[in-house]
């Protein structure tokens, strides 16, 4: 009914967090040397936060369209059809947001955490090679 609002809210919060992280990181950069001897810069954390934001914003945007398609969201006030239908529909909508919406946000975040772990492992491998040289 409006499950996409949960990941969209997370996207808004995380975009602010990313902007703050970008400011804190400033121009600091960690340099590493790749296997073939190329000098490279390690990806800053704010950029990795950007992965999460892109997934959240992308998914929310296309899901918002799906809700528009099914008439659950309308482009005029009160925007959510359930809000017009009464308290029963609203409680059903909130229930769906609490189950499906939260699960969507959790899955996206879990996928991002896996991406972080994999990238960290790859970075460690590159740093080990650098210290071995």
């Amino acid at each position: 009914m409006a499950c996409f609002l949960v990941p969209m809210t997370e996207a808004i919060v995380m975009t602010v967090v990313q902007k703050v992280a970008e400011k804190k990181e400033g121009t600091k950069a960690v340099r590493v040397t790749s296997e073939d001897g190329c000098k490279m810069e390690k990806m800053p954390f704010s950029k990795k936060l950007g992965w999460l934001n892109k997934l959240l914003w992308g998914g929310s945007a296309l899901l918002a369209f799906e809700h528009l398609w099914h008439g659950e969201v309308v482009p005029f006030f009160p925007f959510l059809t359930a809000a017009k239908e009464g308290p029963e529909a609203v409680s059903e909508m909130l229930g769906e947001m609490g189950t499906v919406g939260v699960s969507m946000a959790a899955l996206i975040t879990a996928v991002w955490v896996v991406m972080l772990i994999v990238s960290k492992a790859l970075e460690k491998k590159a740093l080990k090679l650098q210290t071995a040289e």
């Binding site: 992308g58 929310s60 296309l62 899901l63 499906v100 969507m104 899955l107 996928v111």
Partner: peptide, 20 residues
């Protein structure tokens, strides 16, 4: 890359929808 994020993001969300 933008298209990848858009479609992977929505695919993950629809996967949750499908599971429910």
């Amino acid at each position: 890359g933008l298209l990848c994020w858009l479609f992977w993001g929505s695919s993950l969300m629809w996967l949750v929808d499908a599971i429910f």
